[in-house]
Design a protein around this nucleic acid. Structure first.
Lengths: 346, 346
DNA sequence: TTGTAGGCGTTATCAC
DNA sequence: GTGATAACGCCTACAA
């Protein structure tokens, strides 16, 4: 009953196992009628090829592995979900693993996936990732946290942040604080650069070089923090704990979670948002629209990135150059946390 | 280099492939010394057994499938992460799939997992799940949304909610609103029952039968809603849009997301929390501690549930009776959204 | 175009 | 306790 194999199909269809196999694999050299008859029998018998046997012989598992630091992070969970959908569209399934940002664990997971003979790996490297040895032939695409030397896909953090900061500038803000990510994080640095881009550009235009220089010199307008909520909160406290006319009138955070933490800090300090302080985040996680007031943020096109990653792995799309990652444009998701600044009171 | 197989190990160790295999599988009948020598060679050669070949021969894939409705839901993403860890502890990997609460998709995913020869399936059934045919021998454990007829693992929603509502009662609340989940959802009904348990019990004790009866008769203190944020918000609006002395002084929501939506509704109505309204949620997702003020909630022991589910699948633990699911106790996570009620002004 | 047969890397069943 | 050897279920030259 449950033991229906390729030979049963062959026997019942009056053909050889070879023909059945060729039908299974869409080999072109099979008659229309034969193909029809065989597929009929297959359905009739409810035959399903054994993936293990198949994989062993053909070296194709129709499995792709994805390793992320932490599934609890909404950005990554949305990424995984998107990858699952994209993979399913191609008849692939995914093995999910979490590294918890632990390099050793990550290396181990990669080994496991390798020996599982997955057809490809999508990797969000852990913070202290250094390098991996992969059997050549196993495609790997690094996503979000780019690493030189690996095919990469990511949002265009730099331009995304620049866009966001420019939005604040256009509203009239001039003292714009920035909550940066960990300095050893690639995306964090890209985002910081985007901030500096915007500030400097404005400075040049307006002749107010001071702002740009101050920012670059590590002025008190920049606070480094981890990407999480609590870090955002204390960074917010740091940026806001000063006289009103020195305090930023707007803060751009490198992640939505930071931004939400920052909102809490402002709230605790009795600073109303957006009346006395504009706040923007980055990522566009669902959570961003659940805050009070709704967070204005820069959204990464996660689904597109996931689809691209899968396509690259399956050779449906040419892999990006090792040193030229595919970058996806971000867009501003307008919420209620941004408004023109209040004039300083002298 | 990359083609090191069991025969290479055997040759180099001066033993037969059979012995190597036995070492690999911790078969008791192998000398200590031999085992040591072989494991040494294995490490030296960096040999990793081919899971496909292994699975083909032994009918064990060391793979377990998990199907959830939506990975974007923080409860499920934490569940998946916990399952992944638990599985890894047993040398297992997981294939993750999302059904998007779509029964057809779900059925298809189950078929895929079956043909993948996973060693077990952990399933959170979709809302409109009806039944599945599984080749016997494939263990399946239903988690969270219990179904009669399947081995089940879940939090004790009913008692958990009762505990939470009792907390509100102890604070002095008497008009306690309840945001229920979808009426066709099993956990939703369990939670509702827990609410009724608490209300009725108090009514009996205090002789105020009215409360209990009112609640049971579908009084305006109960609002049905989906589990998400927006639904919680409109349910909150519904419950709060009435004269102050008729309005609930506390609201227990069936999910944290609902509770957060409800907080937003209260905020929009100018009702301060917890001064004029206490709010409690259910689930204990990380998000609950990120709100302002921090949400008081009832936490499900997700990790324990995940570990149990894996243990059951792997026969490390006896499966629960088909009609007696394993229930895990919940505990209250105290935040800042609950306080004694203000006295009514007459 | 279709049939035949060998072998993929392990595990399990025998003997020894 | 250990070694030889036959499957496991399928794909793929190669032959017809």
């Amino acid at each position: 009953m449950s033991k229906v194999g390729i030979r049963d199909v062959a026997k019942l269809a009056g053909v050889s196992t070879g023909t059945v196999s060729r039908v299974l694999n869409d080999h072109p050299s099979v008659t229309k009628e034969l193909r029809a008859r065989v597929t009929g029998i297959i359905k009739e018998l409810g035959y399903m090829p054994d993936p293990s046997a198949r994989s062993m012989r053909s070296k194709v598992s129709r499995l792709i592995g994805i390793i992320i630091p932490d599934l609890t992070n909404p950005f990554f969970s949305e990424l995984v979900q998107s990858v699952e959908q994209a993979a399913a569209n191609h008849g692939y399934n995914i093995i999910v693993m979490t590294s918890l940002d632990h390099a050793a664990k990550e290396a181990d997971r990669i080994k496991q996936l390798t020996s599982r003979k997955v057809d490809g790996i999508i990797l969000v490297p852990s913070i202290d990732f250094h390098t991996i040895k992969l059997p050549k032939g196993l495609p790997i695409v690094v996503i979000d946290r780019l690493m030189p030397g690996y095919s990469g896909i990511a949002a265009d953090h730099r331009n995304g942040v620049r866009l966001g900061v420019e939005h604040l500038l256009q509203l009239g803000h001039r003292r714009i604080g920035f909550i940066s990510g960990p300095s050893h994080s690639v995306p964090a640095n890209d985002r910081l650069r985007g901030y500096l881009d915007a500030i400097e550009r404005t400075g040049e235009q307006a002749g107010e070089q001071a702002d740009g220089r101050a920012a670059m010199a590590g002025s008190p307008l920049i606070a480094e923090a981890a990407f999480d909520y609590e870090s955002g909160r204390s960074a917010g406290n740091y940026l806001l704990a000063r006289a009103r006319n020195e305090r930023p009138t707007a803060i751009f955070a490198s992640s939505d979670q930071q931004a939400i933490g920052c909102m809490r800090a402002a709230h605790d300090l009795g600073i109303p948002i957006p009346a006395a302080l504009s706040v923007m985040g980055f990522d566009g996680i669902p959570l961003a629209s659940m805050t009070t007031p709704r967070l204005t943020t820069v959204k990464q096109p996660i689904q597109d990135m996931a689809a691209a990653a899968v396509a690259v792995l399956l050779n449906k799309q040419t892999a990006p150059d090792l040193d030229n990652p595919i970058l996806f444009a971000c867009e501003i998701l307008k919420g209620e946390t941004t408004a023109p600044p209040q004039p300083d009171k002298h």
